[in-house]
Amino acid sequence: MKITLTVNGAEHALDVEPRRLLADVLRDDLRLTGTHLGCEHGICGACTVLMDGEAVRACLVLAVQCDGSSVRTVEGLTGPDGEPHPLQRAFSAEHALQCGFCTPGFLMAAAGALEADPDLADNPEAIAAVVGSNICRCTGYEPIRRAITRAAQEQRETTV
């Protein structure tokens, strides 16, 4: 099937099999390997991307379901001049990554939450929900929570 999707601001016309997953199209066809495949059952969250602004598991979404959609991957977080996103800076500063396998999924889930709620820094329950949506086997969740809180505070300070 022929589909068109915009990934990280670039439009792509693709011919995909109806059963092909978005994660496979991103990784294999578009060479965007930051979207990691962990469990391939939607549980771990390593494959989280934003589709039309909503966090989705790329291992559960068929590519044909994305026709006409806008998809943002972890590669799309950096600014136009290559500057890191506030979440990327905060994850580094708070030591919220270790092996890094889960990091893209956490970054994208948090990016979606930050975009949806500019006051996320004031909502520890919402931050806990973001952190609880993905699995990390290395760092524990406290540094990840601190990183998301830090990025939310930084975002609020720069938009005021």
Rank of each mutant, 00 (worst) to 15 (best):
Arg156Pro: 00
Thr35Ser: 12
Asp29Met: 13
Ala121His: 15
Leu14His: 08
Val25Gln: 11
Arg31His: 15
Arg146Glu: 10
Ile135Pro: 02
Pro84His: 03
Gly45Phe: 14
His85Phe: 07
Cys47Ile: 06
Gly100Tyr: 08
Thr103Ala: 11
Gln98Val: 07
Ala129Tyr: 07
Ala129Trp: 11
Asp52Trp: 01
Thr35Asp: 06
Ser92Asn: 03
Gly34Ser: 06
His36Met: 07
Ala58Cys: 10
Thr6Gln: 12
Thr33Glu: 12
Asp67Val: 01
Pro104Lys: 11
Gly100Met: 05
Thr4Gln: 13
Ala126Ile: 11
His12Val: 10
Asp117Pro: 01
His41Gly: 07
Gly100Ala: 08
Leu114Val: 08
Gly79Glu: 08
Ile144Asp: 05
Met51Ala: 00
Ala126Leu: 13
Thr159Arg: 14
Thr139Trp: 09
Ala116Pro: 03
Arg31Ser: 15
Ala63Lys: 00
Asp52Glu: 09
Leu77Asn: 01
Glu83Trp: 07
Val74Thr: 02
Asn123Lys: 15
Arg156Asp: 03
Ser133Cys: 09
Val160Asn: 12
Ala152His: 13
Arg19Tyr: 13
Arg156Lys: 10
Ser70Leu: 00
Thr33Cys: 14
Thr78Tyr: 05
Leu32Arg: 13
Arg57His: 09
Arg31Phe: 08
Val61Tyr: 00
Leu120Ser: 01
Ala10Tyr: 03
Glu94Phe: 05
Ala63Ile: 02
Leu77Gly: 01
Phe106Ala: 08
Gly100Lys: 05
Phe101Lys: 01
Gln155Phe: 02
Gln155Ser: 15
Thr149Asp: 11
Gly79Tyr: 05
Glu142Arg: 15
Thr158Ile: 14
Asn8Val: 00
Val16Glu: 10
Met51Trp: 02
Lys2Cys: 06
Glu17Phe: 10
Val7Trp: 10
Thr78Gln: 08
Arg57Ile: 03
Leu77Val: 02
Gly76Pro: 07
Glu157Cys: 08
Glu154Tyr: 08
Gln155Met: 15
Val25Pro: 05
Asn134Glu: 09
Gln153Thr: 10
